[in-house]
Design a binder for these strands. Structure first.
Length: 588
RNA sequence: GGGGGCGUAGUGUAGCGGUUAACAUGUCGGCCUGUCAAGCCGAAGAUCGCGGGUUCGAAUCCCGUCGCUCCCGCCA
């Protein structure tokens, strides 16, 4: 080893020892005579003192060193005098008096500060990601990520789970997201697909009798990016045999609680995790992934609105839609203009418009919708919504899903404005009882709301034959701070039921056999009832780290255009490579 | 595919129709033996993303384009 200790290690008890450190020059303070260097490595920083009276050569090397030079320093650990102790540094009670300083490697001046977490344009950080990763923020995030993954491995190993790797080169599944395809050299015109998740393989591992499987699995989906979505991402993929919904949920709840408490410095808000049905989540929050760190719940005021003279309200109710309200506490002082500017938010979510009123101190109301709510009507409204004097009440009237989407957007906007979402707080909840299918109007068929192996709740199984839209799935989503962080289900292990699902989603048996023949056949050889879940590691670590997007917890992420800006991937390839793969590129 | 935001020395920002484009920091040089965001003095460093237009005059206004980013669609 080129170092005897780390830069974060030396304390008072090492005083007098001769040690060797190695690391990067974080900062250098040249006093002409004495030179101080903060030598940095992953573990911390140690102050090096180069005194020309002690070693002329070490002092000369120190004067040549610049930011980010890589140095090896040998010297004697010395206690700092009382008034020179640096309480901000773990090693602040000592310093290393250099006898030998060796420049292991010089460094160009970096394009941005390494020693400061000052904001730098993300494109530049990505181009020099290896420098960005030297910064404290990224080191903290990646180490946190390691700790989370290690906690998961230890936790599951203790409980009898086996970690099994599954192939990255597998088979296309056109039902889901767009696949990343890999051409086959050996099979002209044929392609592997990178897995969107190891879904089929983990179910086959249950057929194979492993009973408890997990994997820290890389997944690939060729869809457009978001702050919480990357073309490749990591899931804790997990599957168990002989379990019911409650078993999987309880395991994950214990795991997540442990991670938050033992690995992060975040506060866990609710134990046990609240459980919401899909319907309840949509009714109360307008979304199936509500952020429960704050209230701002929606109120259905359709019944009251139907009694008003407001055509927009009555029309929506008559058409079978809904009128729902959101109360923005303390925002009653919004001007007409401020209130009307909010309309953009709901319009972006697809709603036609936004109605509003502010509750005055005397209990009367002002604003666009105020004239429809007078006297008893207003009293009813305030009673229903809980709005107080000084509050702003916002209404959206439309089809139920539109109202939900619009008020969800508005709710999140007010959480932001009122700073209600504390990033140090972690609030999980389960969302259950999803409909098994959503009706796809365009294709005139049922689409699975989770995936096509999801079983219905046992008590709803008969509905597959009578009223598929009413069947609830044995599905569970884990939501954290407004993000879906895990989704799972109990799977279908019965061939007849699986075939019925294929039929409902418009997959004829010939096609199903071609795509999933191996699954169908496997299910005929003694399949245990089984189910699983797949928490998204990137999102969970993002939330624990208090970061705004998952790129901050991925070492080498891709940008919004799915490019790697450091390596410049994807890139053109040699014609010979294409030829071997039997591929011809067509110009647009 | 659609909508919004941003783009000015290495970096972070200011300037938003009118002198030589400003400030901080970094870089380079000088001085400096107790600093830890070291200090003091000095210097260099910008075709204001790119192209076009309006104007006597454009970093500033308009159009286009490129890049990054956020959102909708998409994400079984």
């Amino acid at each position: 080893m080129l170092k005897t200790h780390t830069c974060g290690e030396l304390r008072k008890e090492h005083v007098g020892q001769t040690v060797t450190l190695a690391g990067w020059v974080n900062r250098r303070r040249d006093h002409g005579g004495l030179i101080f260097i903060d030598l940095r490595d992953r573990w911390g920083m140690t102050q090096i003192v180069a005194d020309p009276a002690q070693s002329g050569e070490a002092h000369k090397a120190a004067s040549e060193a610049r930011g980010e030079y890589v140095l090896q320093v040998t010297g004697v650990v010395r206690a700092r005098p009382e008034e020179m102790v640096n309480p901000d540094l773990g090693t602040g009670e000592i310093e290393l008096e250099a006898t030998v300083i060796k420049i292991l490697n010089p460094a160009k001046t970096p394009p941005f500060y390494i020693y400061s977490d000052e904001k730098v344009e993300e494109a530049l950080r990505m181009k020099y990601r290896y420098l960005d990763l030297r910064r404290r923020r990224m080191q903290r995030n990646l180490i946190l990520r390691h700790q989370v993954v290690k906690y998961i491995r230890d936790f599951l190993a203790e409980r009898g789970f086996v970690e099994i790797e599954t192939p990255v080169l597998f088979k296309t599944t056109p039902e889901g997201a767009r696949d990343y395809l890999v051409p086959s050299r050996v099979h002209p015109g044929k392609f592997y697909a990178l897995p969107q998740s190891p879904q089929q393989l983990k179910q086959l591992l249950m057929v194979a009798g492993y009973e408890r499987y997990f994997q820290i699995a890389r997944c690939f989906r060729d869809e457009d990016q978001r702050g919480d979505r990357q073309p490749e991402f990591t899931q804790l993929d997990l599957e168990m045999s002989f379990v019911e919904r409650a078993d999987v949920m309880s395991l994950i709840e214990t795991l997540m609680t442990g991670i938050v408490k033992d690995v992060s410095d975040c506060e866990l808000l609710y134990e046990p995790f609240p459980r919401l049905t899909y319907k309840e989540a949509m009714d109360r929050f307008g979304t199936d992934r509500p952020d429960l760190r704050y209230g701002l719940e929606l109120t259905d005021v359709s019944a009251i609105a139907a009694k008003t003279e407001f055509k927009v309200f009555t029309g929506a109710v008559e058409a079978g839609g809904a009128v729902k309200a959101l109360v923005a506490p303390g925002c009653g002082d919004y001007s007409r203009r401020q209130a009307e500017e909010l309309e953009v938010i709901v319009q972006e979510a697809g709603a036609k418009g936004l109605a509003w009123l502010a509750v005055n101190a005397d209990g009367t109301a002002r604003g666009g919708a105020a004239r429809f709510f007078e006297g008893e009507r207003l009293a009813e409204l305030l009673e229903a919504t809980g709005a107080q004097p000084g509050d702003l009440v916002l209404f959206v009237a439309d089809e139920y899903t539109m109202v939900s989407a619009a008020l969800d957007a508005l709710r999140r906007e007010f959480a932001r404005r009122l700073e209600l979402a504390d990033p140090k707080k972690i609030s999980f909840c389960w969302v259950i009882d999803f409909p098994l299918f959503f009706w796809n109007e365009e294709e005139q068929r049922w689409d699975p709301s989770h995936h096509l192996f999801t079983a219905p709740l046992p008590e709803d199984a008969h509905l597959l034959y009578t009223d598929p839209g009413a069947a609830r799935g044995a599905q569970y989503d884990l939501v954290c701070n407004g993000y879906e962080v895990a989704g799972g289900s109990i799977r279908i292990h019965d061939r007849a039921m699986q075939e019925r699902v294929f039929e409902l989603i418009g997959l004829d048996m010939a096609t199903a056999r071609e795509r999933f023949g191996h699954m169908l056949e496997a299910f005929e050889y003694g399949t245990p009832p089984h189910g699983g879940i797949a928490p998204g590691i990137d999102r969970i670590v993002m939330l624990l780290a208090g970061e705004p997007n998952i790129r901050e917890v991925i070492a080498f992420p891709k940008n919004q255009q799915a490019s790697d800006m450091m390596a410049d991937a994807p890139s053109v390839v040699e014609p010979i490579q294409l030829e071997e793969l039997h591929i011809r590129v067509v110009e647009d």
